[in-house]
Design a protein around this nucleic acid. Sequence first.
RNA 1: GGAGAGGUGGCAGAGUGGUCGAAUGUACCUGACUCGAAAUCAGGCGUAGCGUUAUACGCUACCGUGGGUUCGAAUCCCACCCUCUCCGCCA
Length: 430
Amino acid sequence: MLDIQVLRSDLQGVAARLATRGFVLDTARFNDLEVQRKSIQVRTQELQSKRNSASKLIGQAKAKGEDTSAIMAEVALVGEELKTIEVQLVELQAELQVMLEGLPNVPHESVPVGASEADNQEMRRIGSVPDFDFVVKDHVELGEGLGGLDFETAAKISGARFSVLKGGLARLHRALAQFMLDTHTDQHGYTEVYVPYLVNADSMRGTGQLPKFEEDLFRVPRQMGEGGEQNFYLIPTAEVPVTNMVRDEIVPLEQLPLKFVAHTPCFRSEAGSAGRDTRGLIRQHQFDKIELVQMVHPDESCAALEQLLGHAETILQKLGLHYRVVRLCTGDIGFSSALTYDIEVWLPAQNTYREISSCSSFEAFQARRMQARFRNSAGKPELLHTLNGSGLAVGRTLVAILENYQREDGSIVIPEVLRPYMGGMEKLAR
RNA sequence: GGAGAGGUGGCAGAGUGGUCGAAUGUACCUGACUCGAAAUCAGGCGUAGCGUUAUACGCUACCGUGGGUUCGAAUCCCACCCUCUCCGCCA
């Protein structure tokens, strides 16, 4: 959520910056709502003030045993008007809130202006495209060839966009997750957390998935009390439960930065991506991810993002995978993000780079929605900056390992760093 | 699932219809005392919003959440959520 103070003082400026990401801010409507809000709020508070002082007088008069009928008749009129005007105010504020919650974040000044992913800015390539002296297979062929990847059984159990992993592949998947967790906790200073996979609507609102992107989520209806219904939502990323740990909290300054890492499954409806990436593990309704989350002092968020990006890159480097880092342009960054770097890993069978991590700084956008604050050096509560990034998506990393470490006979060489997690195994073969 | 207790400021904890935004303690800040510290004493110290651009002034809202009663609600009524204790069931 954007700061309403900034909208009031520099509406045209905000509109211009949002326009760079293709969002049209309805400035006329905002101004209109604000004008109404202001007059109604002032009037409401005036009336409330009148009522409060009259009630006080009634109390004092009654204490002395005086007649209060005159003043009570007067305050009754105030009450009448208040009743209607308070309703108006609540409605107006709700409208403003809806509008505010629908506004995406303002891009950081370093974000290149562009319309689509074609305008993203490549920052660097690390490693080099591997050479193969045979025709490479894709991960589906390799996985099925090893007897460890089974989409048909998954389709029977659940449907499209699910998978069953077996044997060595299932273990390799687990090894990757363990390796990533250990690296981030032992070498990068993150605290491992285990969190709920079902969260409430407030949490989804806090990180920005709600109210705008409900169709991307799996909703789990839940009967509460008498006829009351509340929903749980399956998390689309660990970002949601982990970031919301600080919702409605005031973190002591000396505890910053907070750095958490979580390994969770992620659930996405993929409502808007019918027909895309239908083959293989790339786009699934359920996948595992190691997520890095930081809550930092506002002065530190830029440096923290570079650092967090480096933590994710470390995993790829240790795994010996070729990748590139891309800075997303204004037209491609996510709703809540101020600045996002994607890490794209080389997939030989697709002869291209595919996203394997996305690292973002949200500045105060999420913190404002969550009221996640810290106590600054003046002792005053101030909004935190939040960041997160995948470190890494486990399923896609598995894909990258299969495709980049394949041999002509369809076996897979296990990267050095994973062998301790694989009982010393050096290759996966049929 | 059954029975009971409870949710109040950073923390602890009073407050059962009217000068209560809220006693008191503690933490914290400032000052006095001290070579310095501790102790003691004095004062200060919630969040958000609006007027209003303002760390100054005024007003409003906020005592788990949402409704209701009332001129007036932390306090009374209703519903819900959460926490704790005991019993039952359970990976």
